[in-house]
Structures are given as structure tokens and as C-alpha cells.
Design a protein around this nucleic acid. Structure first.
Length: 805
DNA sequence: GACCTGCTGCGGTTTG
């Protein structure tokens, strides 16, 4: 049968299912059937899944009983079943005999065993489950006839350690099966080429297939009657609730995205108060609500039973199967891709218009809305930077291989070195790793517990069953925080809260969670027992979570919009709306053009304030503020407290700050940047915090058995112990060095600090002395979080640094 | 005069 005929069959199937066959789909089939590796880049909702399901099936049309043929990787467990159903329909349509299997965490032992004996031809699984399969004896036999592996939603994995884990699994599978094709499916990211490199490692020949489908997105901001009604600071945004209700009313289904779980709770509550008619047809969805409740919400949404769902990014994904009519984003999404992803949940058909309403929570956020629209128009999307040299993930992987078949150093070294992530690994580092897994390394060699792997006849393997079992139980790179389970006294599980929240409450107190008033009955072990009550809640839980700074792409656009605001006329309705406020900024201080950098210096009851506005996101500002504080302290001993937000930062002191002198002496120079940042921040503490995940992923600390988790405080303290031991006695420990590197790369974004300083050094510095706090300054002063740095300590650090260099 | 920030994802039930 010729290629053309095969494609005709696929096309026929597509047509019968009312699918248009796009050029990119046809291109993907052809390229796949020619035997290439590749990556399909297409927007969600364009049928990108089918662009690879179909050729994978066509390829095996006349192949019977060769065992496992295709592995389909999905990052989301819940999507596996959806894909399985779609694939089964396709198999029926083609009249094939293939079996489809799903192997995730909720596959029963019985099903797993059945699959092991009699594997399906088409297996859908997650990166973690794939590694669990690599941890099983006999895996080479299972995978030996594998023809293709497809990584769906590759853009979701690439910027995380899960992506690294995927790279490692691929490096193994490439050797185990002779004719493996590797394909990825990805939404658009800024660094598409790098995404392919990370997927394929040293494989140099591949196809990148881009869908030529334009996604039209319309951004409409929700305005109050006048600019005065918008607060200068704050993040909740409920004062616009009366403008939001009609939008919900006028649509059949609406998703309301908030940036935090507690805001989702608050918005849900306030919406019910203001629009009681929504009771019963509105729901809430976020990551601390039990899976069962969330499944119910998703199901109701799917069947058109819900008019509105208030949610966090927990509803970002799973897009292909749950379309809705209207999207509302409350507060800045902080990144272009995230905003587009959410917008794409409406108008969910190729070519259809996606519309997203933006609800500002404070006035300056309107500039971000204009920036987002502009970025979308210009096709500006964030990069997802692959993790490099994550030794914690590699250690886990080596033990995985040692648990199942065992491995030979030479073979696996070669494979690992062929990946994008570990391309630069040296033989010396490799031997350090082997030594670490066999002896525990220099610091831990006295403890049997860390001699996990043995070397026997040139093969590294784990023989202790207990070590093997513990290892299998901790495969994966997602380290979750310990939390308490909220349950009704009947035992029904509702979701999780954090210990510090519940510790503030007493039995009888009422809190609002999962959209209900719950009375605290008692705390029993790790369970919080509650009952429903009509009493009004006095507290809403908040959860500690990742902080998402303004992305660099959005920063660029934001600065562009600020520059536009210095011109007499502006186009975006948001900018027009906010113009009076910007006039006030100009009146009290200055409105910088793109050639200027604004510094404000003034005295208040609190002391002397210096404010700078790089508009680069809070992480960059954190590092910059620490850097400048250190350099100021070299001019004069001074106590400074630091505050920042995504727009700028503040240095506050009870004595005068020599800012003019500092500028003259180049306080913003990039010379000695790395040294000064290191000296200015508490890098040991930051590294120690970062080490918690590394200790867990590398298997240094055991998180406990399911349902019997070790307390978070215990994990925290033992990982700190490891960190301190390594820091004091084993400074060349690769896991320790990794912690410091992660701080610089991800916490402080050193590269961005450097770029920002270079930009500022080409700008004209404008220092104003406003009489009153300005619209720019106010939100930073409100958000102030003081990190007292005493001059003595700084002096010590400077001394220490001088000794070091 | 203006103020309730902090997401998501997976996996695993032994031994005494």
C-alpha cells in the first residue's frame, strides 16, 4: 500500500468524523510515515492530537501482535482517558484490532499485571509511570518493538524537571528499541527550536511542523465608571464585581480565573452574595479541593450544567475536551502565554475568535492589559527554559535503572550524555554520581541507608528489596507540601489546608472553604474535622504557593506601553482610561520615557525612601535591591529595609540615603555583579530552601508511606541537616552546587538582572523628590515586606567577600 | 485616601 493510499484512509476517517484535515495534519502524517522524528506545533483545539494518533495507527494497520507499538505521554492523568477514548474511536474507524491501554497512578494493580502479561499496542501514560515501568524487571523486553513515542503537551514539560525526566527515559528507550521515532506535540513557546533539541537530544535530523492556523484573541478590559474607583494598590479586584455579574448573566458558561486559590474562594463567596440566583449553577475549582469534587465540577461543566466556575490555573489544561463560552481573568496573569492559554478556552474551534475579559485589581494593572493585547498581536510568547544538569533527577534515574535490570556505567553514561540536559556532564561528575549512589558520598558513607546501589560484575544494581520499594514509591519530580486533610466528621474528604492557617483557629470557629461555611470540630492527626454550618465564616484559608513574577516578554511590552503614555495621545482604551493617573504621576514626580530611568527619593514619617522602577518583575527587583543596598553600605554604614513588587523596589532607612553620590559612583554597574549579588543576598538561606526539593527528588529524604506521610517539618529539618553538612564539609557536592545554581537561575534570574542593568546604564537617570507618594510608589509601599539588613552584618559580608577575592 | 496575593502537575500501601 502506498503512502498516498494510507493517507486516504486516514483522511476518510477524519472526514467521517466531521474533521477538516488541515495542512499541518497531513504534513505530520506524511513525515511520520516517512520515519522522521519531529515536533508538531499547533494551537489547542486544532486537532493536533489527531495529527499524530492517525499516522501512528496507519503505520501499524497491517501489523498484528507485535506487542507494545506506540507510547503516548501526557502530563495530565485525567487527559489519558480522554485520549484513550479518542484513539479507540479511531481504531474502530480504521477497522483495526489494536488494544489501547492506560497506565497511570490510578490504574489498579490487577490491570497493571494484566497489561504486563499482555501489553496493549497503544499505551497512554505519564512521565512518572513510564519511569515506574523502567523500574520493573524485564522492561527491555516490553519496549523492544516500540515504534514510536509521542510526548503530548511538550511545552508543559520542557520547563520543569519532569521534562528532564522525559529526556532521560527517551535516551533509554532509544537504545532499547531499534527503530524508535520520537515526536512531540507543543503549543507555541518562544524557544521552539530549543524545545526540539531538548526532546531529541543529539538526534540532529527532525521535522518541525507548524500549524498555519491563526488564533484570533480579543482582549476587553472591564472598567469602573471612573479611574478614581480603582484602588492604587491591592490584588483582589472585587470592587468591580457588579461589572462582572452581567457578563456572567449574558453567557451560557463562563470561567473566572483568579491568580490564587484564596481569591477564588473569596470571589465565589462575593458572587453568591451579590448574585444569589447563581447558587446551584456556579462552582469553584482549584488545586486544594479534593479530586472528587473537582471531577464533579468538570463533569457538570462538560455537560453544560454550570453557568460559571471560579477557578485557578487548575482549569488551564484539559482544554481540548471542555469548551466554554466566556473567559474572565481577574488580575494580571503575569505572562502572555498563560493569558492566551486561558483565552483559548473560549471560541474553542479552529478559526473561531477567543474573547477574554480582563478585570484589573489595581490601576496600574490596566497598563498590563494593554501590554498583553500588544504582545498577543505581535505573537510574543514566553520561552520555557529547559533545566540543565539537574543532578537530583539523574540520581533518581540511575537508581531506577539499578532497581530493575541494573546498568553498566559506560552504556548509560553515553546515553545520558546524549541528552540536552546532561550534554555537558563530565566523566568526573559521572563518577561522583556513581560514588554517591553506591556509598552515599564523602559525608554519608558511614550510613548504610545511603549505600543504595551495589556494583557487581560491572553492573550497578539494587539488591535490597526495601530500598527498591521505597525508591519506586518516590519516583517523580513534583515535591508537594505537606498539608492537612479537611474532612467532614463522617469522614468525607473535601480538600486540603495548610497547618499554619488552621493553627490560628479554635474548635467552633467557622471558615470558608470549597465554597461552604465549615465549622472546625477538632484536629485529629493530619485530619481537620469539620461540619457544615449556617454561621458566617470569619476566615478564608490562604495557601503558600509559587510566586509568578512578570515574565520578561510582558515586561518589555509593559515598558513600551509606559513610553506610549508619555506621548500626548494614546490608543489603547486602558491607557486612555488611566491617563489622569499618569498625569498625577507626572505632576508629583515624573513619567519616564523609554530613554529614562526614574528614581524617587523622599522623606516620610517612616524615614527616607528611595524607589526605583525597572518594571522587570519582583524576582529581578529582589536581587537588584539587595545589590544596591550592599553597594550603598560601602558608601556609608546604613540600615535599609527592602520592599518590591513587579514594577519596582523601595529602599527605606531611618537615615539619609546617599543616592546622588551612589549614582555618581556607579551603583548600577554590572561590574562584579555576580560577586556583589552573592554578597548582598543571603544565598545560604536561599540555597537551603531550594535544597528541600533536591533532597526529596534525589532520594536523600523519604517522604513516608502513602497515607502515613512524614511531617513536613521533619522533612524540612532533615533536608536542612543534609544541606548544612554538605555546605560545611563537602563543598564540591553536586547536589549542593545545584541548589546554589537554581537560586541564581530561577530565584534571582541573574541573567535578567544583568540585562536590566545594562539597559538602565544606557538610560538617562532622572531623580525626583516628590512631596507625596506617587502612584508608582504607593503599591510598593503598601506591599512592603521588610527584610532588615543591619549594617554590621553587611560590613561582615563585605569583609568576608574581600577575603574571598 | 486608596491595602485581604502567591499556581499547576504525579506517584506510592511495607514491616513489625
Amino acid at each position: 500500500m502506498t503512502n498516498g493510499e494510507l493517507i486516504a484512509i486516514g483522511a476518510k476517517w477524519f472526514e467521517s468524523k466531521d474533521w477538516n484535515v488541515f495542512d499541518f495534519q497531513r504534513e505530520a502524517w506524511e513525515s511520520y510515515l516517512e520515519g522522521n522524528h519531529g515536533l508538531v506545533n499547533a494551537p489547542t483545539g486544532s486537532g493536533k492530537t489527531y495529527s499524530l494518533v492517525v499516522p501512528a495507527l496507519l503505520d501499524g494497520l497491517h501489523d498484528t501482535n507485535n506487542g507494545l507499538q506506540v507510547i503516548w505521554i501526557t502530563p495530565i492523568r485525567a487527559l489519558a482517558k480522554e485520549i484513550a477514548n479518542a484513539t479507540e474511536r479511531a481504531i474502530d474507524g480504521l477497522g483495526m484490532q489494536w488494544k489501547v491501554g492506560v497506565r497511570t497512578g490510578d490504574t489498579s494493580t490487577k490491570e497493571r499485571n494484566a497489561m504486563k502479561k499482555n501489553p496493549p499496542e497503544f499505551l497512554i501514560t505519564t512521565p512518572e509511570s513510564l519511569h515506574l515501568m523502567l523500574a520493573q524487571k524485564g522492561y527491555p523486553n516490553l519496549f523492544k518493538n516500540l515504534r514510536a513515542i509521542v510526548c503530548d503537551e511538550w511545552h508543559e514539560l520542557i520547563g520543569s524537571k519532569r521534562g528532564v525526566q522525559m529526556e532521560l527515559a527517551l535516551s533509554r528507550l532509544k537504545s532499547v528499541s531499534d527503530n524508535l521515532r520520537i515526536w512531540g506535540i507543543s503549543a507555541t513557546i518562544g524557544n521552539m527550536e530549543q524545545a526540539i533539541e531538548a526532546l531529541l537530544g543529539d538526534e540532529k535530523s527532525f521535522k518541525l511542523i507548524r500549524a498555519d492556523i491563526e488564533k484570533a484573541i480579543e482582549v476587553e478590559s472591564v472598567f469602573p465608571e471612573s479611574v478614581d474607583e480603582l484602588p492604587w494598590a491591592g490584588h483582589l479586584g472585587v470592587n468591580l464585581i457588579d461589572k462582572v455579574i452581567p457578563i456572567i448573566e449574558n453567557s451560557n458558561s463562563t470561567l473566572i480565573f483568579t491568580n490564587t486559590r484564596s481569591f477564588a474562594e473569596i470571589w465565589y463567596q462575593k458572587l453568591l452574595e451579590r448574585a444569589p440566583q447563581l447558587a446551584g449553577i456556579m462552582a469553584m475549582h482549584h488545586g486544594s479541593i479534593s479530586r472528587e469534587l473537582r471531577d464533579w465540577v468538570e463533569d457538570q461543566l462538560y455537560h453544560g450544567q454550570l453557568k460559571a466556575v471560579v477557578c485557578t490555573s487548575s482549569l488551564d489544561l484539559g482544554v481540548d475536551f471542555r469548551p466554554v463560552e466566556t473567559i474572565i481573568q481577574v488580575g494580571s496573569p503575569k505572562g502572555v502565554a498563560r493569558f492566551m492559554q486561558r483565552a483559548g478556552r473560549s471560541g474553542h474551534a479552529p478559526g473561531a475568535l477567543s474573547k477574554i475579559y480582563f478585570v484589573p485589581t489595581h490601576s496600574l494593572e490596566l497598563i498590563e492589559a494593554a501590554a498583553l493585547r500588544n504582545a498577543i498581536g505581535e505573537g510574543l510568547v514566553e520561552d520555557r527554559i529547559p533545566y540543565l544538569r539537574s543532578f537530583d533527577v539523574l540520581i533518581q534515574y540511575l537508581i531506577t535503572l539499578a532497581v530493575s535490570e541494573g546498568f553498566r556505567s559506560k552504556d548509560i553514561y553515553k546515553e545520558v550524555k546524549s541528552t540536552f540536559s546532561y550534554n555537558s556532564i563530565s566523566e568526573e561528575e559521572w563518577h561522583w554520581l556513581l560514588n554517591f549512589i553506591t556509598t552515599g558520598g564523602a559525608s554519608l558513607s558511614a550510613y548504610d541507608e545511603y549505600r543504595k546501589v551495589e556494583l557487581e560484575d560491572g553492573i550497578y544494581k539494587v539488591s535490597d528489596r526495601r530500598i527498591a520499594m521505597r525508591h519506586r514509591m518516590s519516583i517523580g519530580t513534583i515535591v508537594s507540601d505537606a498539608s492537612l486533610k479537611v474532612k467532614y466528621t463522617s469522614g468525607k474528604y473535601i480538600g486540603t489546608v495548610e497547618e499554619y492557617f488552621i493553627s490560628r483557629l479554635n474548635p467552633g470557629d467557622v471558615f470558608w472553604f470549597a465554597g461552604r461555611n465549615l465549622e472546625l470540630v477538632r484536629i485529629k492527626g493530619m485530619d481537620v474535622q469539620v461540619r457544615n454550618t449556617k454561621k458566617k465564616a470569619k476566615a478564608v484559608p490562604s495557601w503558600q504557593g509559587g510566586r509568578m513574577p512578570l515574565s520578561s516578554q510582558l515586561s518589555v511590552m509593559l515598558r513600551k506601553k509606559l513610553h506610549e503614555l508619555t506621548k500626548p495621545t494614546v490608543e489603547d482604551p486602558e491607557l486612555q482610561f488611566i491617563k489622569p493617573l499618569m498625569d498625577l504621576q507626572k505632576e508629583r514626580s515624573h513619567l519616564p520615557t523609554k530613554k529614562e530611568f526614574l528614581i524617587e527619593y523622599f522623606k516620610s514619617d517612616e524615614g527616607y525612601h528611595v524607589l526605583m522602577y525597572p518594571f522587570e518583575g519582583r524576582f529581578v527587583h529582589e536581587g537588584m535591591a539587595a545589590l544596591i543596598a550592599l553597594r550603598l553600605s560601602r558608601i556609608t554604614p546604613i540600615s535599609l529595609s527592602i520592599a518590591m513588587n513587579d514594577y519596582g523596589f523601595e529602599l527605606l532607612s531611618d537615615q539619609e540615603i546617599p543616592i546622588y553620590e551612589a549614582i555618581e559612583t556607579d551603583v548600577l554597574t554590572t561590574d562584579d555583579l555576580w560577586k556583589d549579588i552573592q554578597a548582598g543576598i543571603n544565598s545560604v538561606e536561599m540555597g537551603r530552601r531550594r535544597f528541600r526539593d533536591i533532597a526529596s527528588i534525589s532520594g536523600l529524604v523519604f517522604k513516608g508511606y502513602p497515607g502515613n506521610q512524614i511531617k513536613d517539618r521533619h522533612i524540612q529539618s532533615s533536608s536542612q541537616l543534609f544541606f548544612d553538612v554538605f555546605n560545611d564539609y563537602e563543598s564540591d557536592n553536586l547536589l549542593l552546587l545545584q541548589a546554589y545554581e537554581e537560586v541564581m537561575d530561577f530565584q534571582l534570574e541573574e541573567a535578567r538582572i544583568r540585562q536590566a542593568l545594562e539597559r538602565i546604564n544606557n538610560q538617562k537617570i532622572v531623580i525626583t523628590e516628590p512631596q507625596k507618594p506617587t502612584p508608582f510608589a504607593f503599591p510598593i509601599m503598601v506591599d512592603r515586606l521588610r527584610e532588615k539588613v543591619t549594617s554590621e552584618k553587611l560590613e561582615d559580608r563585605v569583609k568576608k567577600m574581600q577575603l574571598q577575592f
